[in-house]
Structures are given as structure tokens and as C-alpha cells.
Design a protein around this nucleic acid. Sequence first.
DNA 1: CGCCACTATACACCGAGTGAATAGCAGGTC
DNA 2: GACCTGCTATTCACTCGGTGTATAGTGGCG
Lengths: 194, 194
Amino acid sequence: MSTAHALLGLLEPAPRHGYDLKRLFDRYFAPDRPLAFGQVYATLGRLERDGRVVVASVDQAEGPERKTYAITGAGERDLDDWLRDPIDPEPHLQATLFTKVTLAVLTGRPVTKLLDAQRHAHLARMRELTTLRRDAALPVALLADYALFHLEADLRWIELTAARADELGRVIPPLIADPATAEVRPTSVETSHA
Amino acid sequence: MSTAHALLGLLEPAPRHGYDLKRLFDRYFAPDRPLAFGQVYATLGRLERDGRVVVASVDQAEGPERKTYAITGAGERDLDDWLRDPIDPEPHLQATLFTKVTLAVLTGRPVTKLLDAQRHAHLARMRELTTLRRDAALPVALLADYALFHLEADLRWIELTAARADELGRVIPPLIADPATAEVRPTSVETSHA
DNA sequence: CGCCACTATACACCGAGTGAATAGCAGGTC
DNA sequence: GACCTGCTATTCACTCGGTGTATAGTGGCG
């Protein structure tokens, strides 16, 4: 998520080259899943193109080019804005879990089975994260907490939806074979984010 | 999120053409933000290439080609698997909020200010969603609940992190200017998902 | 008669991300 | 000392998801 800004942030204290940035990124932001090299250089390329980063020096000491990147004024402004402005919180009403449930209803599959399977997967992952959390350093513990909180949120939603499953089955307008007959009335959802 | 499977699901009860799928998708899965046409046809193209749908008929009644798509056996199997298998729950330890906090620490910015701004944005969005939820039909209400639960999860995490802000500042290893001096010891995070 | 809105699709483009290829250098080993 | 492994460092080709725009016919309305 916003790899570009993370790289900018790592470049602010001091210029660095791509390989270095990749390791720092992995260490600080994604202890779990390392950032692919390709992505680092592609992102740096875009940042350079947009004037947020410049190549400060090219070490050509008889080897592969070692390009050192440095943040620019525009880059610092961009980073500052990004850190100051809060993330847009849940801007759209959309969720994969909800899509699955709706699709199950529409195609006549049992909703409860789907929700049960998901609950089990969630509980298993929560046990995993709780274990991992125990002997983790603070940053990793915070990341585990973040995941755990959101898994709990999912679980609450799963229970709520399970309780409403019958009603949902009655309420969701069924798919009609002939498109011409299908009356399309927009659900009229208005949000300031829309 | 998995637009392809959603389209497959809409195609299972009856063959349809792209435009129709787009409207159904908007209606059932994203009352908020409509699916772009380009994406529908691109996705259908990939599905056709992979043998999950076929063009059932081409109405060429003196207008633009009206291709009707139908799901195949492979497509039904794929859909069935997707609906049966639970979503991988929070598979990686990563969060934009955490990235921001870490970056603030690393670049010497005040963490509390960042968290305060985010809390306000979250609370505002929660008020918005609560209002919307009141006179919404069940499906939209469930989507709003989903968002609200996750906003609550974020808020809990924000409070937790705010309480640990000082400790975090002490614990996060600072960025060292010279990359050669920077000792990189992997954080050794192991998960079955890795 | 001209304009707008609707149905319907295609095309060009961009960002994010993956995986393989390349290439030099350091260190250990049989 | 020939070979292999592993590390530093970057590039390239490719796919996917997604946005925006162009195209084109049709029906209604003033």
C-alpha cells in the first residue's frame, strides 16, 4: 500500500540505492513478505519521472551500476502531505465476504456453510497470530494486533450475517433470466465519498 | 476484489452480455461505486481466454455486436471452489496505518498528531455510515456494518498504538546514514502463510 | 431537426506486482 | 586453481486490475 511513499520516507533521512531501500522496507514495514526487487526499481523509476527523487550518484566501480537516489523538495512535500493527511477510512461500501454471501444467495447455495468455513479459517489464523504475538518485539506485536482486531471485526460481522441469513435470502431480489424483464432500480446510496 | 468470480456467479443462473453484467454487479455488490465498463469487458476477455466462459451468441441486429456470454463447466467448477474455500484471513502482517506511524518515528515527526488526525477522520466516517445505515435496506445495512466494525477495529488499534507511542520511539531502530554500518538482522517472523 | 440519453463494446494507457535474467565479486571447498 | 554458492545490484518482459475515452446505433423529446 503506497510503496512509493514508504520509499520516499526511507530516503528522507539519507540518500540510498535501491537494494538498500528494499532491505529497509522489508525490515520496517513488511517483516512478513519481502518486497520484490522489480517493484522497488519500477517505483523508483516512477518517482524519478515525477521529480520526487533524483539519481544523486552512479558508482560504476567495475560492477553493476549502483545508483544512489535522493529525495527532492517536491518529494519531501509529497511525503509531508501524505503523512499529515489521514487515510480515507473505508471509503467504499464493498467487501469480498459480502460478495460471497450475496452470490451464495443468488445461486441457491447454503449461506451458513460458507460462513461456518470462514469462521473456522478466521479462528485458526487468530490462534496463529496470538502465538506469534507472544514473543514478538513491539512493532511486530502491533502488526499482529492490527490483524487480530480486524479478524475480530470480521467475526462479529459473520455472526451478524448468520443471524440475518434467512431475512437476506428473502430480501435479495432474485436474478431474472430475461434481462428485459429485470427492473433496475438503483439502490440510491449517497455518501460524501461518492 | 475478485471481479472475475463475481461475474462468473452472475453468469451461472443464465447467460448474459457485458452491459447487463455491469448493471447487476453495481446493483448487488457495489451500490456505492459502479464498475467501469472497460473492466467488465477486460475481465470477460480473460475469462474467455481461460475457458471459464464462452460467447454463446452474437446478436448483430444492425447495431453494435451484442455478445452473450455463458459460463462453462470449468467456470462452474471455479466458482464452486471459490465459494467453498474461505478467504485467506489477514494473510500478511502489513498495514498502511502502521507504515505511517513507523515512518513518522523514523523521520522524527510527531506520532500523536498523526494518530489524532486519523481518529477524527474515522469518527467522521463512522457518523456518516451510521446515518446511512438507518434507512438502508438489509444488504446495504450489512455493508455499512462491515465498514463500521472495521473502523472500530482501527480505532482500537489507534488507541493501543497511541499508548505505546513512546515505547515505540525507543524500540524502532533508527535509520543509519551509512548503509555499510547498518546491521541488518532479520526480525524472524514465521507464519504458516509465509 | 437536432440533441440528449441509453445500450453496447473496444482500445489505449497506467500503476502495481511477479519472475526470470544478468553480472560482478567474495568465500569456501575438493 | 577450478568450481560452486551466495550476496550485491539492477533490468526486462509480462500480467492483472483499473480508468478514461472513442465509437456507434437507437429511441425519445421539444
